[in-house]
């Protein structure tokens, strides 16, 4: 329309894009949604440590979105050197596609999960509904806010935590677990489209009596919304959410960044890396670091996906595939 306006706009666009075109070794870490804080703190620490050790400067770029969506992008050609995800299924998919080594869980300690979290309850101040355990959630009149159990990683963890807990009750079996979840979903008035939106729905819009979410989220919620309005309740038993990482072999071989990528992920297990995780309210694997931050991580009896569900592949097949246990609950008889 207006030529000078147009050229000004182009110039502005060009200027702001210019800094991208720097040539140096860079790593792309493709990660899930809420991991930004962890890596925002971690990346400079790694860059400094790596420079001190090798004299080489590495730039780390971040990409964040929903976990599964990110992994699909990597499979479709997004050139990630490393992936840091919130569930093993996502990395398994890349292994299936031949981008990640089939034995990726053996490449790093702790099944390649440098830190963990667990699912906890967040309730209104004073815990008016006296929610202490999973069974309190299915009492009539209690309203539960969770993200979509089929479409979000956060929701899947919640689902498996609830199922696993029911399974581990005296006399618990698949049938009683299904009955528990059926009752559970009678109390969910809505499924939030993502973990973050579940939080907003609960805290800002005042929906529901209890929010089930990651322990690490509770701290982020406190930072954003203040500590006064809610309380964190640890159920006696919950799931151990392992947050795995992997090198994307196909990409690092092509780009010649294997050495840097390996160092980047290994550093997550260093004292610095573990401390950084603990600072961000993720449970570190390192016993010493864990001890130092023990007051942040109340004791919870946890179970893993591997021991309770026989691994993510089986869990996905039984519960989240079309026609799985979740779909059966929402079938009209």
């Amino acid at each position: 329309m207006n030529r000078s306006l147009l050229s000004a706009v182009l110039l502005a666009a060009g200027l702001s894009l210019a800094p991208v075109a720097q040539a140096q070794t860079s790593l792309l870490n493709v990660s899930y949604d809420v991991a930004r804080d962890v890596f925002k703190d971690y990346n400079p620490k790694f860059v400094a440590a790596y420079k001190a050790r090798t004299g080489e400067t590495v730039e780390v770029k971040q990409s964040h979105a929903g976990s599964t969506k990110q992994v699909r992008a990597v499979a479709d050609g997004l050139e990630a050197d490393v992936v840091t995800m919130n569930q093993a299924t996502d990395i398994m998919f890349l292994a299936e596609k031949g981008l990640v080594a089939a034995d990726w869980t053996k490449k790093f300690p702790n099944d390649a999960a440098p830190y963990t979290s667990t699912m906890v309850f967040i309730v209104r101040k004073g815990n008016p509904k006296a929610i202490k355990d999973w069974n309190d959630l299915i009492k009539s009149g209690t309203s539960i806010i969770i993200p979509h159990p089929k479409n979000t990683g956060n929701g899947r963890w919640t689902y498996l935590a609830a199922w696993g807990n029911a399974l581990k009750q005296p006399g618990g079996n698949d049938k009683s677990a299904a009955a528990y979840l059926s009752a559970f979903f009678k109390n969910t008035p809505l499924f939030a489209p993502g973990g973050r939106d579940a939080t907003t729905t609960f805290i800002q819009r005042g929906q529901g009596d209890v929010l089930v979410t990651f322990e690490s989220e509770a701290e982020l919620i406190a930072r954003e919304f203040g500590r006064g309005g809610f309380e964190v309740v640890y159920p006696p038993q919950s799931i151990l959410t392992e947050l795995p990482v992997a090198i994307v072999d196909k990409v690092v071989d092509k780009r010649g960044t294997r050495k840097q990528a390996q160092a980047y992920l290994e550093y997550l297990w260093s004292k610095d890396g573990q401390t950084n995780a603990a600072e961000n309210y993720l449970r570190p694997r390192d016993a010493e670091v864990f001890k130092k931050y023990a007051d942040r991580f109340p004791a919870v009896k946890t179970f893993t996906v591997d021991e309770t569900f026989g691994g993510w592949a089986k869990a996905t097949e039984a519960h989240f595939k079309d026609g799985g246990s979740f779909d059966q609950i929402y079938q009209v008889k």
């Binding site: 599964t68 969506k69 699909r72 998919f93 979509h148 089929k150 479409n151 979000t152 969910t188 008035p189 809505l190 499924f191 939030a192 489209p193 939106d197 996905t316 989240f320 595939k321 079309d322 779909d327 929402y330 009209v332």
Partner: peptide, 30 residues
């Protein structure tokens, strides 16, 4: 839509959300 819908299957679940659900299971064909 997904923010305001509630996304309960059979009640307030729109077709694009089902498409996403399929993609979340890596079911491209579905």
């Amino acid at each position: 839509v997904i923010f305001i819908a509630g996304n309960i299957p059979l009640v307030s679940e729109i077709t694009p959300l089902l498409i996403i659900a399929k993609l979340e299971q890596y079911d491209l064909i579905g």
